[in-house]
Design a protein around this nucleic acid. Structure first.
Lengths: 223, 223, 223, 223
DNA sequence: CATGAATGAGCCTTCATTCAT
DNA sequence: CATGAATGAAGGCTCATTCAT
């Protein structure tokens, strides 16, 4: 419990990001956070006006010297690369954070949880921070499908995000499905490759089919 | 609702499935469940040996006269249909349950939450029940990719499941991304179509690429 | 901390009435009340839905077998006695409660505090219970001044109530003003006599003057 | 408000007097006071050795250039006026402060609260400051009843003070008793008139009766 | 002279569970 | 079978104060 060198505020942010990432908003008690930070429980209310304020701060905090935030990768802004490659880099970056350790990773994991199970009453800033990866994905997908409808782009964005976010939680699941499987260090890269390839094919092919489809009939045929 | 028609046990199961589906395991308090069931709070401990037992019961409960359980659809067992169509039917069925009401739907939603955020210490039976949709998906995908490696199949299963589960939670997200969007009644069918098309393309094309790829190089190039 | 013979609910009411009377709503902590009642702190929330509910229950509780409540004395309902005597009896009864011990007395003291420093958000029932002594006083004064205006009656009611309530708090004050003074057992009767005599004279004489007065001038002369 | 015009000490006094007057000692938090004063929370401990010291300072503070304090009015010191008129002027002055705004008014209101619900452990100086209005009243009443016993004078003092203090709190009460009543601007003067008239009659007549009464019998008859 | 930071104590409430009836 | 009563644990928060700067 040595206060170490960092500010209490910073230690609280660090501890909170880790515990929020691992246990969720409700599961991480303010007492546990302050204990892990080596601080008094009241310090959370003092510095962040309560547990929710701390949660928002974790979502919106940009470490000093780092330009972007949660899902920030340069890939989005380097249009020189081919679109498919930029998508793969983005996915790999996101997946790395969703599986990694350290403040950036935990922050991304908190944002991922926030997407799936939102905590009520957050500031718009915090909500936007959680949505940032999706917005960036939208830009990337729009670059890949320049002529697609907004709806088609949105569908693809959700498909890609769904895969990435699910892989965030799939450690447990894979282990249950195949207990003999050992999660390798390079697993993240293989997974990113898979999602990128899978999604590139899905987007491009499906977009063609969608355009030439008689949508009503296919839906009607379902039953 | 009607405190006399069904036994207390059944009313507790019904109320619990709904509240667990809507608010999750932690968010649904035992008091709220017993209140909604018109029963005493102690009834939960009495009938199910505690809140966790009730949760497990919701996951493993098979309504009388109904053969299967959570993800049970006939599509898996009717190999006459083309594989792609069976996949589409399965996805549509799952999505319908993830968006619907009634015990079956709530049960599926509880299972979905359990996949994404597992409650610790469940019985193997309950865990298996939550995993059933993934197992069924595995059978379907194996039918679509007869010659693929187990790993490739597992990847595809997770990709499809990720999309479906994310669409379960995406009402809020879509609304935030595009506040003007109104969720239509037929949305589920369109979404199922999209996921099926997207995933069929992803699976088939990606499988080819994966086979012919120099995997190491592509991963190495990533950084 | 023996639970004695009374219900936990009753013991809580008893302890709460005493502590609320002595320390006020804020000053009496829920912990202290439950401790004095020999009960668990959570029992308050269980039986009364929180501290405020307990406070309301103290105000509105009518002990079994007792017809009226807080300021209930028979004097109001026995129009056979001369009005002045009924007033004296009422004042004496009220003062006795404001100075005494036991549930009835503490209840009256809580109501007195509630008049002077209201606790926000109480039910109408509780508010009415606190006001009951004033309403009864109004009836008595109306009997004494049958032809006076409503305003004159209200003024007199407040004057009498003001005296009684202030005597409730004046133990400390008298002691400070005249430290040698010993508060005798018969003090309450003497005080009631004084207030009754003082107020009877004030009401009757002042009412005459008020009627024959040029009110505007007297007020104008004030400055 | 203007953080530079007055010293921090003075701004704290001003803010504290207002908040103590409106919310009482417990209800006014040190944070709220320092915030309203535009000062740091620690300033209270620094300047006044804690919240209680600030409270004492509010009670004992005499604004520079002003001779008297809380209940100070010239009426007490001008024996030329008839006693009844001096009483009326005193009552009006007190009531005006108990209903008004500004430091003097808030100070009087704090003193009034202190009479009704004393804060423990105050210095003698502060206690005396709160009692000053009663002492002044005693002088006035002694002038009106030159031959009465000390006890009779004290009784009358408490009766008058009780009325005045209760009118301080009666805004809420009157509103509850008679919701249609609108508190007029001139209400204070009318009320002062009433209390003065009521009390003059009470004092003079009651004093006669008291002298000629068989006290024991009347008290004995009470039950 | 003033402040931001930090603290320990205390507050009220909710929760899942247990027990006697 | 079912229930009302009761409980201990934990949770988030506010408060007045202290301390180093």
């Amino acid at each position: 419990m040595e206060p170490s060198t960092a500010t209490t505020r910073e230690r609280l942010l660090e501890a909170a990001s880790e515990l929020f990432a691992h246990r969720g908003f409700r599961g991480a008690s303010a007492r546990a956070i302050s204990a892990q930070a080596g601080a008094n429980a009241a310090a959370i209310s003092y510095h962040f006006r309560g547990k929710r304020g701390l949660y928002e701060a974790v979502l919106t905090h940009a470490p000093p010297g780092q330009p972007g935030c949660i899902g920030a990768t340069e890939s989005v802004d380097r249009p020189a690369d081919p679109a498919s490659r930029r998508l793969r880099v983005f996915i790999h970056g996101w997946l790395s954070r969703l599986r990694g350790n350290g403040f950036d990773a935990w922050q991304a994991q908190v944002a991922a949880r926030e997407l799936v199970e939102p905590v009520g009453g957050l500031s718009h800033e915090a909500q936007d921070a959680a949505l940032r990866p999706l917005v960036q994905l939208e830009t990337l997908v729009r670059g890949i499908l320049p002529h697609a409808s907004d709806e088609a782009v949105r569908y693809s964005v959700l498909s890609i995000a769904g895969q990435c976010l699910f892989y965030f939680n799939c450690r447990t699941i894979i282990h249950r499905l195949n207990p003999s499987h050992r999660m390798a260090r390079e697993e993240v890269m293989l997974t990113a490759d898979h999602i990128a390839r899978f999604s590139m094919a899905g987007m491009t092919i499906a977009a063609c089919q969608r355009n030439s489809d008689d949508r009503g009939r296919s839906v009607g045929n379902l039953r």
